[in-house]
Design a protein around this nucleic acid. Structure first.
Lengths: 142, 142
DNA sequence: TTAATTGATACTAATATAGTATCAGTTTAG
DNA sequence: CTAAACTGATACTATATTAGTATCAATTAA
């Protein structure tokens, strides 16, 4: 069971790169090469993040992408939801109200509790927090 | 993001059915029809659970499957691990020790913490607990 | 005016999930 | 003793998701 897929993962790395250079434009190309992310794949992720108002772009020479939303306001939960859909434990049957089977309903109760726990844990992790951790780690490693 | 896939889900339902009739053999066919699980699919899941010593089988007429392991000792974590592989937040890069990229290491720390939280939450949910919840619910609904 | 860039979108490849089919072997009821 | 009800084993197909590539038009700064 894999919790973060590549796209979420790459998106996090890209946001860390952009947050570290807040206020200036970074090209998709430079992010891709520096962070070892497939270029065209990354471009699609960046587009998606523009649509969600996490970042903005500038076209043309010297163009690129820049942070828009405050990194402390961007949670991993939000990124998972954008790139992998809402966290839900068992999609098909507990969501439908039909639920003829009693066993499902019992499971559903536990499962929604865990859903909330998972979400709230991932909500504690913001891009801002990761960036600070990253900076702290890089000082130690000097 | 889907946490439980069909196989885990079906496995849980089958175990609940078997636990409810502890000590007697239930055929794959009867479980499949009663719980609306594709028959051949279920059979594979049952085989897998035999391999993991959760249940035992008896061949031939009047044969079927019976619980072996104590339902209170079977956690949802265990079932997820059997059918979906170990819970891990980001498979490919944090596991390898290589980790040339510092950003990965920072994420890795948070991510392993969450991994533990998720696992421990799912460990609280056992087949035994679900069965008791199920029985309590069915009394209320009488 | 051209090279570096994003916008948009279509495409392919690989993998995981879900489900089906088949045949051999075992057991018990009649 | 044999036919029917079962499991054991395994191969197969279908669908969905994830991952990655390619292409071309539009924009912009040098």
């Amino acid at each position: 069971m894999k919790v973060l897929t590549k796209n979420t993962d790459y998106a996090i790395r890209a946001l860390l790169a952009l947050s570290a250079k807040k206020g200036s434009y970074l090209s998709a190309k430079s992010i891709a090469t520096e962070h070892d992310i497939p270029y065209q794949f990354l471009r699609r992720l960046l587009q998606e993040m523009i649509r969600h108002n996490l970042i903005v772009s500038k076209e043309g020479v010297q163009g690129g992408f820049m942070m828009q939303k405050d990194p402390d306001e961007i949670t991993v939960t939000e990124l998972i939801e954008i790139f992998q859909g809402k966290v839900q434990v068992s999609e098909c049957m507990f969501r439908k109200q039909i639920c003829g089977n009693r066993a499902r309903c019992v499971l559903r109760h536990e499962i929604m509790r865990i859903e909330r726990v998972v979400q709230s844990e991932f909500e504690k992790v913001t891009i801002g927090k990761l960036l600070r951790d990253l900076e702290a780690a890089s000082q130690v490693n000097q």
